[in-house]
Design a protein around this nucleic acid. Structure first.
Lengths: 246, 246
DNA sequence: ACCTGAACACCGTTCAAGT
DNA sequence: ACCTGAACACCGTTCAAGT
């Protein structure tokens, strides 16, 4: 009440070694006895967050807006979640949950890997906010970990070990997430006026960018072809490494 | 003044085919006669933005804070820039400007490419916010375009054409940006308490994640080794493709 | 051409209080 | 154990006004 106490509010959580770091929701131990028959649950919140993000985009997600779609008040969410960032971790792991894994590994490990890469790409593209998000935070949710386990297992059975195994798994994951992030980031530029402005820009500076100016700019329908081509490069490099070992 | 007119304010720019899309600052034609001897300039603003981002992080960048370091009022920035997003495009391209390109291409194109990849990685790591940012928006600034031109030229001279050329260039750029984004996103998890929590989490669920549980979790000093290894994989795949063509 | 100042419609988060 | 309501300290952005 006293006006002099007014300045005590903290600015947005920053720094601090505390547990409020992205991905940390997975590492915090939940108090037992939570969630007994309450209306809200992490699952419902995760799903609702995905829905709002799909509809309104990353900048359209606010606690107030999310709360409305859950028929609840904004501050209620803080009982289930510590931070807005937690919501993003929840939503992102839900997307990873959409990637279907085969029940058994294929004879040919490259089948497992290319199948997974296509599956992950499809899931991420379904939720245009998820690619950029996935490249901005550690992927520690149960669904993401299960996918990582699948990839590691496939690579291990192929013969990769130690640093090679980790580097290969990272390269695979990064490739998919990176290409999807790029692709979705171009979604607005893909609209004709922006694309035209870009073309004019490049040709106007053709002296500076001789090679780029000749290059056809990405067109919607070629994203997948480019993805598959680059995936081929990467897998060729991986198999080359294997045969060098044997 | 009249209270009934109050609701007319718009919510944050969303949708709309208008020119307010990420990266668009580069595609907008500036009114001529701008910036004649004024104190502020795009360059000064870009540099200040980088400084604030380095110091306060992505969530710590606000127009008010940036304006303060420029000794100017927040609303003044709108004369030079249309949107907060424009600031990010400006800052990101400044980081690309830190990547030094060799004056001439090497005899061996892989030297050019690996040199560039290391250089880009170093620059992005210097500004921990830049990796995630780079994977979230089109890279259309003059500095980014010049780097892209360099990579395309090196690959073209190596013999890549058409789809192979574009896919190879994209894979190279994505690989660096993706690995840096991952590495920086782990910076907080790398602190001991969080890392310990993660280790316990993985071992506690060892049944679910048998392969992951055996895997040594990333340690600060191994990031570069992993980066270099994955780069080797990618380049092996690229050279394999070349020799198949000939 | 460039900068200021006031104002609007939002934010995330805390905390005391209800059931 | 879970939800509400009021409040705080911020935001980005617009617009009329100054020089």
């Amino acid at each position: 009440m006293h006006p002099l106490v007014t300045m005590r509010r903290m600015s947005p959580k920053r720094g601090g070694t505390g547990p409020h770091t992205p991905g940390a929701i997975w590492l915090r131990t939940r108090a037992p006895g939570r969630n007994t028959g309450s209306e809200l649950s992490r699952e419902r919140i995760a799903d609702a967050t995905v829905t709002v993000l799909d509809r309104d985009g990353m900048s359209g997600l606010s606690l107030r807006r999310l709360a409305t779609t859950l028929n609840v008040h904004a501050t209620t969410l803080y009982w289930h979640v510590a931070t807005r960032d937690d919501l993003l971790d929840l939503a992102l792991d839900a997307v990873f949950g959409e990637v279907v894994l085969p029940e058994t590994h294929a004879h040919d490990w490259t089948h497992d890997i290319t199948g997974y890469m296509h599956g992950l790409r499809t899931a991420l593209l379904q939720h245009p906010w998820s690619g950029a998000l996935a490249s901005s935070r550690p992927l520690l949710g149960p669904n993401a970990l299960a996918r990582a386990e699948f990839v590691h297992a496939a690579l291990a059975s192929a013969g990769f070990t130690e640093l090679d195994l980790t580097a290969a798994a990272a390269a695979i994951s990064n490739y998919v997430i990176g290409t999807v992030a790029t692709e979705t980031s171009w979604q607005h530029v893909d609209e004709t006026p922006a694309r035209q402005a870009l073309n004019e820009h490049l040709h106007h500076h053709a002296a500076l960018y001789p090679t780029l100016a000749t290059q056809p700019p990405p067109i919607d329908t070629t994203w997948e072809a480019h993805f598959t081509r680059g995936m081929t490069f990467l897998l060729a490099g991986l198999t080359a490494q294997l045969s060098r070992d044997q």
